[in-house]
Design a protein around this nucleic acid. Structure first.
Length: 219
DNA sequence: GGCCAGGACACCA
DNA sequence: TGGTGTCATGGC
């Protein structure tokens, strides 16, 4: 398909989903710190379990950079147990907090004032932050124009709609969207949120419901 | 009781 | 560079 056609088609899909879902107000979370925590906690985990862990941290009034930084890895792991992989995720969150403290004096505002392409590299250097987590942090907590690719994106645009010629890696898939969509973080935000909704509701690994999927007319 | 969920990394060849 | 094992809880 010609590039212009691909762009038009992607935008058309995006508009179709906007009509279908309305504004999704993503990412679920009141503050940038909460969004960042969510990005770690939902790694290979369903959101409901991650959400429980966040609620527990909020209920204990521990949701601040300063407080979490001084919490031990063990204490943190017990708070986030509900989301699975909790030892691992506690270490990863502590790795991030250590980076934030060392590099930006614990200030998320200073961190997000950094050029986002440099910040992306810095985040990827932290053990426990891969491309999806880094991009979720940049887009949803920092309002940076980065497209987030996840398991649903692959399933919908590769397995279902066959947009990618072969199985692209993360960077290639991301480039596909960023090349073909306007450079606008609001569009990236909303489109990825819509993709997750479609993935959860219509494009499950088993028993996909293509018939009722609002994207079926684009097949 | 089995399968799955909004990844990332260590290890090995 | 690519494939495989590991990390783990809770809902259906």
């Amino acid at each position: 398909m010609e590039e212009q056609k691909i762009s038009e088609r992607l935008l058309s899909m995006h508009r179709c989903l906007s009509d279908f879902y309305g504004p999704l107000h993503w990412w679920p979370g009141d503050t940038s710190l909460e969004i960042i925590l969510g990005a770690f906690l939902t790694q290979n985990t369903n959101w409901a379990n991650a959400e429980k862990a966040i609620q527990k941290i909020k209920k204990e009034k521990l949701l601040s950079v300063e407080t979490l930084f001084h919490l031990s890895e063990e204490q943190l792991s017990l708070l986030i147990k509900s989301c699975g992989y909790y030892h691992l995720k506690a270490r990863r969150i502590k790795n991030f907090l250590f980076f934030l403290s060392e590099k930006y004096s614990g200030s998320l505002e200073d961190m997000f004032n950094q050029d986002w392409q440099i910040l992306r590299k810095e985040l990827l250097n932290i053990n426990g932050i891969g491309p999806e987590t880094a991009d979720s942090i940049l887009l949803y907590a920092g309002n940076k124009p980065v497209f987030v690719v996840d398991a649903y994106t692959k399933r919908i645009f590769f397995d279902r709609h066959g947009y990618f010629l072969s199985e692209y890696n993360y960077e290639q898939m991301q480039k596909f969207f960023m090349k073909n969509l306007p450079d606008d973080y609001l569009i990236y935000n909303e489109f990825h949120a819509q993709i997750v909704m479609i993935g959860k509701n219509y494009c499950k690994r088993k028993n996909p419901d293509c018939f009722n999927c609002p994207l079926s007319k684009f097949l």
